[in-house]
Design a protein around this nucleic acid. Structure first.
Lengths: 341, 341
DNA sequence: TTGTATGCGTTATCAG
DNA sequence: CTGATAACGCATACAA
């Protein structure tokens, strides 16, 4: 590092005052009407010795850390890691760094994370909140830190948010099943009060109601073990004999389901319809290719960070924005048994 | 937040000096022989008002930020996001936070990232370095910051590192092809001077040499477009008619390859062998299931962070450690055409 | 146009 | 055992 050089050393070496150096460094030379010669001289010297301001000291002074706290369910989940990847780029381009952390849907963990982020004095937050952390998030807002939510909403807090039209997406997907002649359509979802999960289920239910059919729903815990899922899921299937299509409301439930369906001898595609939420690298290559409800990852990331940077840029409290982005139904063979005839 | 309270306020409120409060807060009460009554009193008050020390100020003073810089190729790659996930946990448990960034194999980007991390004064680095950043990493080391490398090595720097036995893994996998009766075995790899890629290729070559066969290698650029890959790959296949097995040295090349092989009508599994580096969610569910060389992700992460924490804990310069972990060859149908007879 | 002095919240050095 | 007080490096109000 050789991080010994401070603004003072520069000032001394050049025989000017630290203020002058500071102004030049912050691009306020013109504004402060510092002579161009001097400005150049400072810039040149700074460049020569490779001086970099100490961001800690600067942050301590200004109260800004140029850091954004990103709280996701799990960074190892492709949906979130892709979001993170996209956010990273835009944040960096705007001079912000990312501190991230995975909640694993645990309230405890989330509390700890938020506490840490607060300690670190991040300037703003992007959060996909688990259930039950309303109070903590509320506290952030009270601390005047901008917060943008995604993936899951917490309506009552009136925060900026970016989400997708969950209900319609599920409704639409279920309609595809119906249109393709599936009769007994089930929904496998999370046992959760998260709004987006409820919405997805609701969309499914409504589509069935349109055709005077009754919903068949299996709910699994977020952190269900493979064994428990297997047991629960297979007894669900035998209980409701004749199910010929399933809408999975999350990606990893779909993967779990796919595995067990195959093990149990169901012919996904040929006789059994399947649609999953969220795109996945290999869904297209799966045999049969899996129909998915794809979220616009890039766009979500863009809107999130744009919203946050917006808030970061001003002190005024703006009307909260709720962006609802459309999904894309990526039609593949798994939702159309007619292709197999 | 209400982050107005400082150690000074506490001192005033309690009628003691800031020093005392500081000592108590840092658990040095005993050491400094501060009366227990006073200690309790301070602790109690601090707890009551929910005071949290300002980590910025502390870092400025101590020169430690309790932050680790994690530099990966791309956080959206499952291998790296899983590593990141595992590292995150252990780091947090030890009081460290993670700043991360994706290089996308660009020297420019990596330089910028390293610069940023240095500005942020991270305490240590975990890096999977692209080619050509030796000088920059060297500089970190000169700045007395511990650096642990993974996935790719830079031998001459003599840094701590965690890697896998790339050559043997590829050798072993190729042997499986040979044992299962494949005749014309190709290798698809990265056009790169990265040591681990050369090692993988070398393992493949050696296995073939054992049987007096000549290697057939296709090399693609790291950031090759789908179209370019398609063109290059298919002309490679026609040039070397009769190829009946391929070892892919990276996960995403395998996925690209899989896609094009399917489009071109090759019957992976039945008549065409395939083995890929790195596990993937859906490889097991693919039809046929894909044989992979699986890296011990948890263990890699554990060793990385353990090594780094070790270095962080002491000033002494220790003999650099090079941990080489074994991979697991996950045998599935894609590498055994006999299963299809 | 530039310099001086002060504070951000901690920790550490030294006295007492 | 405890309390002043000086740093850490930067930014800014205020002077000159």
């Amino acid at each position: 590092m050789a991080k010994k050089i401070s603004i003072l050393d520069i000032a001394k070496a050049l025989g000017v005052s630290p203020t002058t150096v500071s102004f030049v460094l912050n691009g306020r030379a013109k504004e402060k009407r510092i002579s161009e010669r001097l400005e150049e001289q400072v810039l040149k010297y700074v460049n020569e010795i490779g001086y970099k301001p100490n961001s800690l000291a600067r942050s301590l002074r200004t109260g800004k850390t140029n850091t954004i706290g990103l709280v996701v369910e799990s960074i190892s989940n492709t949906f979130f890691s892709n979001i993170a990847r996209a956010i990273e780029d835009i944040a960096y381009a705007n001079g912000y760094r990312i501190l991230y952390s995975s909640t694993e849907n645990s309230i405890e963990r989330t509390r700890a994370i938020l506490q840490m982020f607060a300690d670190r004095q991040v300037d703003g937050y992007i959060i996909s909140p688990p259930e039950g952390v309303e109070a903590e998030i509320q506290r952030l807002v009270e601390g005047k830190k901008p917060v943008v939510l995604f993936d899951r909403m917490i309506d009552k807090l009136g925060l900026d948010s970016v989400s997708i039209n969950n209900e319609f997406s599920a409704y639409n997907a279920t309609k595809v099943f119906l249109g393709n002649g599936y009769k007994l359509i089930a929904c496998v979802t999370l046992d959760s009060r998260q709004q987006q999960m409820k919405d997805r289920e609701e969309g499914y239910v409504k589509a069935l109601e349109d055709s005077a059919l009754s919903p068949i729903v299996y709910k699994a815990d977020f952190d269900i073990s493979d064994d428990d899922f297997k047991n629960g899921f297979s007894s669900f299937l035998t209980q409701h004999a004749g199910i010929d299509a399933i809408l999975f409301t999350t990606n990893y439930l779909a993967i779990k389901g796919l595995r067990h369906l195959r093990n149990m001898g169901y012919k996904v595609g040929e006789t059994f319809g399947l649609i999953a939420f969220d795109e996945h690298d290999l869904f297209e290559l799966h045999q049969p290719p899996i129909t998915v409800i794809a979220q616009p990852i890039e766009e979500i990331a863009q809107k999130l960070i744009a919203l946050l940077l917006d808030r970061l840029g001003t002190d005024r409290i703006l009307e909260p924005q709720h962006l609802v982005l459309p999904t894309t139904l990526q039609l593949r063979a798994s939702s159309n048994k007619n292709l197999f005839r």
